[in-house]
C-alpha cells in the first residue's frame, strides 16, 4: 500500500501509447433494412407500418417497439417532408479511425416525411440552407448521382422553395 505522502506526490506520466482499434465487419441488412437501402438506390423511401397501431417507421423496423409485434408491411413515404426539429453543430468530433474532422457548422434535421405517421426521419441539410432553417420549413431530398444502396445515396435535404 502506498503511504499517504506518496499518494499526494505530483503525478508523472511515464509513457502514453497510441492505439487505433479496428475490426473488419460485414453487416447483412436483412429483409427490412435491405428493402430500405435498395429503395434509396431508386430514390425511394420505404417505411414499415405497424399492423397493430398503424404508425410508420422510417427507416423501417421489423418490429413495432410500442406494440411488440412484427411489422413487415412496407409503405412508400416522402420524398418531401417537413422539418420538425434541427440542431446545428459547431464542433465536430473526429472520425475515430481516420481522425478526419468534417467541416462546420453542419446541421442534423428531424423530418416528418409526407405520408408518414408519428414518425421522424433524421438526415443532414445542405450547408447553404442552414441560415434559413426553422421548424415547419418544407424540404426535399438531394440524391447522389452514384447510388450504391447506402445512406450516402442521399446527400442531404434542401429547402423546398
Amino acid at each position: 500500500m502506498m503511504t499517504k505522502d506518496k499518494r499526494n506526490a505530483p503525478a508523472e506520466e511515464l509513457i502514453s501509447i497510441q492505439v487505433v482499434n479496428a475490426i473488419d465487419c460485414a453487416f447483412p441488412t436483412g429483409s427490412i433494412m435491405g428493402k430500405w437501402f435498395r429503395g434509396l438506390k431508386e430514390k425511394k423511401f420505404y417505411a414499415t407500418r405497424c399492423p397493430s397501431c398503424g404508425r410508420t417507421m422510417t427507416p423501417p423496423r421489423g418490429c413495432c417497439a410500442l406494440c411488440v409485434v412484427r411489422s413487415e408491411e412496407f409503405v412508400e413515404v416522402g420524398p418531401k417532408g417537413t422539418v420538425e426539429n434541427y440542431d446545428i453543430a459547431y464542433y465536430a468530433s473526429p472520425d475515430p479511425l481516420t481522425g478526419k474532422v468534417r467541416s462546420t457548422p453542419y446541421a442534423a434535421v428531424f423530418v416528418r416525411m409526407d405520408g408518414s405517421d408519428r414518425d421522424i426521419f433524421t438526415h443532414a441539410i445542405r450547408d447553404e440552407d442552414i441560415p434559413r432553417l426553422k421548424r415547419g420549413v418544407r424540404v426535399r431530398p438531394v440524391w447522389n448521382e452514384v447510388r450504391t444502396g447506402s445512406i450516402e445515396d442521399m446527400l442531404y435535404f434542401e429547402i423546398d422553395a
Binding site: P28, T29, G30, G62, R70
Partner: peptide, 15 residues
C-alpha cells in the same frame, strides 16, 4: 445467417 439481422433472429425467438 446472411438473410437475417440479429434483430430479426430475436423476433423469431420471441414469437
Amino acid at each position: 445467417i446472411w438473410c437475417k439481422r440479429f434483430q430479426e433472429m430475436l423476433m423469431d425467438i420471441l414469437e
